[in-house]
């Protein structure tokens, strides 16, 4: 089983960090994983994306061109990548940041106002983790327990206080129906 995941949005939304948590989740489940950021000037406020592969087999190209799971946190990313998602794949949309919906019937689309939910719950900057919670709710690619461990692992020891906020954000995403 291979999950090719593409996360995309603006620089500063925590796209790379969210990808890192996904990759660590795979690592903790003893899977093969890869994490590849887009790098360069686009990271300064422009678009930013990150490829994560989680697989039982060795990973070939780490660059995800046909994602099985797409997470988008801005409108340009939805427009750019929605056509590339595999049939029967997933598209998870931050509906507080994205105008429009997915006009494909062969993929499973989910909408969560992650940025709004982050603001409402005093979790500024936590939209990336909330949307990850939603991703886990709908795809179940690893267990919730593994995912929580990954959050704790990725948050540096110096910022341990932030782990609680991240876990709270995760739970908001996991609980979100609709």
């Amino acid at each position: 089983m291979t999950h090719d995941i593409l996360l995309a949005g603006f620089g500063g939304q925590g796209i790379l960090f969210a990808g890192k948590i996904l990759a660590y989740s795979g690592l903790m489940d003893d899977k093969e994983v890869s994490w590849l950021p887009s790098y360069g000037p686009e990271m300064r406020g422009g678009t930013c994306n990150c490829s994560v592969c989680i697989s039982d087999d060795p990973i070939g190209s780490p660059l995800v061109v046909e994602p099985s799971i797409l997470v988008v946190m801005n409108t340009p990313s939805l427009e750019k990548f929605k056509g590339s998602v595999k049939s029967d794949g997933f598209i998870i949309v931050d509906s507080s940041m994205v105008d429009g919906t997915v006009d494909r019937t062969d993929v499973k689309s989910f909408y969560i106002p992650a940025t709004q939910l982050a603001q409402d719950n005093d979790l500024a900057g936590g939209a990336n983790i909330i949307i990850l919670g939603k991703l886990f709710r709908e795809t179940g690619i690893v267990s919730a327990e593994t995912f929580k461990k990954a959050v704790e692992k990725v948050v540096p020891a110096k910022k341990a206080a932030l782990a609680a906020n991240n876990l709270k954000a995760l739970q908001i995403g996991i609980n979100y129906e609709g």
Binding site: K20, A23, L27, E32, V33, S34, W35, L36, P37, Y39, I59, P62, L63
Partner: peptide, 10 residues
């Protein structure tokens, strides 16, 4: 190359 340098793997 840049891909190998920037990517993360176990």
């Amino acid at each position: 190359d840049g891909l190998l340098g920037q990517m993360m793997e176990p």
